[in-house]
Design a protein around this nucleic acid. Structure first.
Lengths: 240, 240
DNA sequence: TCAAAAGTGTTCACCGTACACCCATGG
DNA sequence: CCATGGGTGTACGGTGAACACTTTTGA
């Protein structure tokens, strides 16, 4: 802490002191998934400018935190969740992207399981899940961030197994397939999908069945977390 | 311009004014290619801290420019080149990454044709091309940036045609194959490589031959720029 | 004439894709 | 008993990978 104070005092003496400083924000594109498909979490902004409009959840980078720290802080404030899968995307720097003041924003994307998300928090933050097709147009360049995040999500889904972060602990093959179909915006063949997933050997089939959607009942599966993460780090072999 | 001045005057009144501001830098990972293989351009830093050590070419973001503007300005200062292929990578934000002062850095990667690069500029900027294996360890987190840029470069080479930006206007198949082998760090089969490239229909074979590396001479090729860029925007079909 | 690089096709294994029927059960 | 979703296998075509010989010509 003393170190930090010393740093502050020194600011005027720094060799970089003639350089401009800017506000840096993080904005989180939060994807979730439920029986209706892929969704995104937006909040109704409660401060100016653009108060009352829909926005990604964001916050300003503080002097003593990294971008990842800031993104996790923001995500925790909105969802109460920690240790969520999150990844940095691009930075956005158009001069007037925020009409209030020049702000650089670093986009992050997060995948969360909607069931883990506490609905009470929705009210505190005026947050709401939207299906992609039905989401309102958000402020600033947030729509562009979302579009670019979707491209990244599709690319990931096509080259790596995905789903662990978005699905409940136990899920049916049909749910996993629905997730892929939502992300890719296309129908997949049931038999081919299942054999590709099985070939990865990342799932454990349980004895238990989910009878909520059929009379016969569908086997529940779990990800084998270790094998799953190994596959994710692997080469580029996986293709849906 | 008046608008800018007004903005500056308003700064103290801004609703965001209690937020921290930080220095933002851009750092360019500049890849080139010549007969010895894939190379990277580093400069000998001429100011403190770390004066005299090797570094990526970088600069601070100015208030009235975007990140892309800044990266292009930096690249032009170093190479004299404009309209170079450049792409934003990730941002780096560890608190002490620059010991002088808290600085956020946004990495860019650029592909340039070494032959277009003016050697005189090398001396002005104390810049030097290094083969990847022989490059000195650069300052701060620049090695991490380079490593992550290489991953991106490999991924791109595996999914899209690449080379237009790195090769001279006219080149032989062997040169193109050498480029791919450099990027991927692996030998490729000549016959398979050529048939895959030809299948893309992005090259035009000229009548002209290059006799500098063999007695028989090798046909020179040119990229068909239009078809090349179409393929680059295409789906994910290309595989080396 | 020979060394050194250029140029050219075929075969095989595997993977992606298309496709259809039976099963189990609650109502 | 039947409607509804669940579960399973096979055949075909295309693509990636392995592989070797002939051509050209300057030295």
């Amino acid at each position: 802490m003393n170190k930090l104070i010393n740093k502050k005092k020194k600011v005027q003496l720094h060799r970089y002191s003639k350089e401009d400083k800017v506000l840096v924000a993080v904005d989180c594109i939060i994807f979730g998934f439920d029986k209706e498909g892929l969704k995104i979490l937006l909040i109704k902004r409660d401060f100016e400018p653009k108060k009352g409009e829909w926005s990604l959840m964001g916050g300003f980078l503080k002097r003593q935190e990294t971008l990842n720290d800031a993104a996790n802080r923001v995500l925790k404030k909105l969802t109460g969740l920690e240790e969520v899968y999150m990844e940095q995307l691009l930075s956005y720097s158009e001069i007037d992207r925020d009409p209030e003041e020049r702000t650089l924003s670093v986009a992050f994307f997060a995948l969360i399981n909607i069931a883990n998300y506490d609905l009470k928090l929705n009210k505190e933050n005026a947050a709401q899940w939207f299906s992609l097709a039905e989401a309102p147009t958000p402020i600033f360049d947030h729509q562009q961030m979302i579009n670019e995040a979707l491209v990244t999500l599709k690319r990931k889904a096509l080259s790596k197994p995905i789903g662990f972060e978005l699905l409940p602990n136990k899920f049916t093959m049909r749910q996993l397939q629905n997730l892929y179909e939502s992300i890719l915006s296309q129908k997949l063949d049931k038999r081919n999908f299942i054999s590709k997933i099985n070939a990865l050997k990342i799932l454990t089939r349980l004895e238990e069945k989910d009878k909520s959607t059929s009379k016969k009942g569908a086997y529940l599966y779990q990800f084998d977390e270790e094998k799953y993460h190994l596959k994710k780090e692997d080469g580029f072999s996986f293709r849906i």
